[in-house]
Lab assay of single mutants.
Amino acid sequence: DWREIAKLAEEALKKQQPVTVNGQTFNDPNEIKKLLETAQKAI
């Protein structure tokens, strides 16, 4: 669910920690931002 992904990505950016989505881990803040943008577009 994109809403859940957006929430996870936002928290990861705030806490500056990696986030795992669908078994894929994102460590890079730039990648997390991209993930968040993608999720927000999909909602």
Rank of each mutant, 00 (worst) to 15 (best):
Q17P: 05
F26H: 05
I5R: 00
P29M: 14
A39Y: 03
A6R: 08
F26V: 08
E31V: 09
K14E: 11
Q16T: 06
V21E: 00
L35R: 00
Q16I: 07
E4C: 14
Q16G: 15
A39E: 01
F26N: 01
R3C: 13
F26E: 03
A9P: 00
I32V: 06
T20P: 01
N30G: 13
A39I: 08
R3F: 15
W2N: 04
T25K: 10
E11K: 06
R3S: 14
L36H: 02
Q40G: 03
V19T: 03
N30P: 04
K34P: 01
L8A: 11
T25F: 11
A39R: 00
N22S: 06
K33T: 07
K7E: 08
A42G: 07
K34L: 13
R3M: 14
V19E: 01
I5C: 03
A9H: 02
A6T: 06
K15W: 11
E37I: 10
T20K: 09
D1P: 09
A39C: 03
A12F: 02
T20G: 02
I5V: 08
V21G: 01
T38R: 13
T25M: 09
L13Y: 04
L36P: 00
I43W: 05
I43Q: 06
N27Q: 09
P18T: 06
E31M: 10
V21D: 01
K7R: 13
A9N: 00
K34D: 10
P18N: 05
Q17R: 07
P29E: 10
L35V: 04
P18A: 13
W2P: 04
F26D: 00
D1A: 11
T20I: 13
T25P: 03
D1F: 15
E10C: 11
K15I: 07
A39W: 03
Q24S: 06
P18F: 08
A12Y: 02
I32R: 00
E37W: 06
R3Q: 15
A6I: 15
E37L: 12
D28S: 07
W2V: 03
F26S: 02
Q17M: 13
A9C: 07
T20S: 11
K34I: 12
L36G: 01
W2L: 05
Q40W: 14
Q24M: 14
V19D: 02
R3L: 13
W2M: 04
K34A: 10
G23L: 03
I32G: 00
A12Q: 02
L8Q: 08
Q17E: 11
A12L: 03
F26A: 01
I32W: 03
E10M: 12
D28A: 05
